[in-house]
């Protein structure tokens, strides 16, 4: 893979200079880092809760056998899938539409 420079006038250089591109990249980057931070924090929190307060996790929900740990654990599985779905929904919808619009404008 070669690494040509972005001489003025190439498609890439024109896109890089387009304010719609910079706005899109900034917004998408903020979104993906926010979701990354949420994932890391929630997971670290879950592990720390287990490491520091096992009795809290083992307590019963509604007096039955089902414990808080089970509910939170299953919520972790579902939440992981959900946060991926949120990202894909927005990236494949809103962001891809803006990329397509940008590229169409540049080619013309």
């Amino acid at each position: 893979m070669s690494t040509p420079s972005t001489a003025d006038g190439t498609v890439e250089a024109r896109i890089a200079a387009d304010p719609r591109y910079t706005a899109l990249v900034r917004e998408r980057q903020r979104f993906s880092w926010t979701l990354t931070a949420i994932t890391v924090l929630v997971y670290s929190g879950f592990i720390s809760l287990i490491a520091f307060d096992k009795p809290f996790m083992a307590q019963s929900i509604a007096g039955g056998a089902t414990s808080l740990a089970v509910v939170l654990g299953i919520a972790m599985l579902i939440g992981t899938v959900a946060i991926c779905a949120i990202y894909v929904h927005r990236a494949n919808g809103r962001y891809d539409a803006r990329v397509a619009e940008l590229l169409a404008g540049i080619d013309a």
């Binding site: 993906s32 880092w33 979701l35 990354t36 994932t39 890391v40 997971y43 879950f46 592990i47 287990i50 414990s67 740990a69 089970v70 654990g73 972790m76 599985l77 992981t80 946060i83 991926c84 990202y87 894909v88 990236a91």
Partner: peptide, 24 residues
């Protein structure tokens, strides 16, 4: 009992990171 689920969650949480930072 429960501990097996902690493993399982660890194996799943890498995927959002792949998606948000690297995949596309």
């Amino acid at each position: 009992g429960y501990d097996g689920l902690i493993y399982a969650i660890g194996f799943l949480v890498g995927w959002p990171i792949v998606l948000f930072l690297i995949g596309e």
